[in-house]
Design a protein around this nucleic acid. Sequence first.
DNA 1: CACTATAATGATATTGATTCTCACAATACA
DNA 2: TGTATTGTGAGAATCAATATCATTATAGTG
Lengths: 153, 153
Amino acid sequence: MTTMPGPVLGDLDARVAQRLATGGVRYTKGRRLVVRALGRAGGPRSAAELHGRLRPGIPLSSLYRTLTVLADAGVLARSHDGHGVALFELAEWLRGHHHHLVCVECGRVEDVDVGDEHERTLTGVVLAVGAAGDLEVTGHRIDIEGVCGACRA
Amino acid sequence: MTTMPGPVLGDLDARVAQRLATGGVRYTKGRRLVVRALGRAGGPRSAAELHGRLRPGIPLSSLYRTLTVLADAGVLARSHDGHGVALFELAEWLRGHHHHLVCVECGRVEDVDVGDEHERTLTGVVLAVGAAGDLEVTGHRIDIEGVCGACRA
DNA sequence: CACTATAATGATATTGATTCTCACAATACA
DNA sequence: TGTATTGTGAGAATCAATATCATTATAGTG
Ligand SMILES: [Mn+2]
Ligand SMILES: [Mn+2]
Ligand SMILES: [Zn+2]
Ligand SMILES: [Zn+2]
């Protein structure tokens, strides 16, 4: 019913290292920490959230730069929480294509793997609508909004 | 193929006036200007964009307050361009449910009415996926990304 | 193992969007 | 009309994010 949970996190470091190497970008300690933290996270995270979780108190300014570098290198994808705060997650080629469950109460965002069957359906509609709107479609973003289990309790 | 373009803009003022009245909020000149401008717009707009278009130079600070008031009153929906800039559009009950075509080149965002058939399909998948993810679904947001006609030319 | 060139970091200043403050003006309505 | 309430405008303040720049770490090189 659901797709495979995407590429294993085991070789995450290796895959990122590879990618950064080809770009002449160093895979430093701080960058590793950020990549691993996002590998563990179940959804996109803000700089502030990451700053709170990262043990060796990486300065916020460095963290922002790290996030920018990784995003520019294509390792991270940047999105937004809808209230002025940027969110980061592993890029699709690392994490696998997925969508988001957004709790309208607490604001929590969780990854959700839609499954091949459903994804095919979505892609079909998206392509048709995009073409009708004179758009050369390259992708789509879907947020499913609702109230999470925690907030219903 | 496409749905009706949503509620007519003719009674836009009346409907907004009604809504604001029940909340004890005045429908002032500046607020009317903003609502009408967004009624004419073909997609979500930033405060800066609106500021540029509005004839009687409404101060930016007032414009921001107006946008906030209208959003709080449920007349406007607030979203985000992903680069630190908030976007505003008429709420669904005024504009009708729709989605967005986003040009990854120029950043332009355009409304798109998906059509009942496609919308039913999307809603079906969204409900199924949300339920599977323990989310009490209340809505969904879909951005179709690609390259617009202008940018291909 | 030093030595040098290059890239990364951290502390701080700065930007830019948005929000807040507060004195003043407009509006509702008794 | 008089008075309470709500809205406005100009500027200060806030906050996420970025830029600066001196310092430190790293990859190579001999
Ligand atoms: Mn998808
Ligand atoms: Mn829809
Ligand atoms: Zn929640
Ligand atoms: Zn474009």
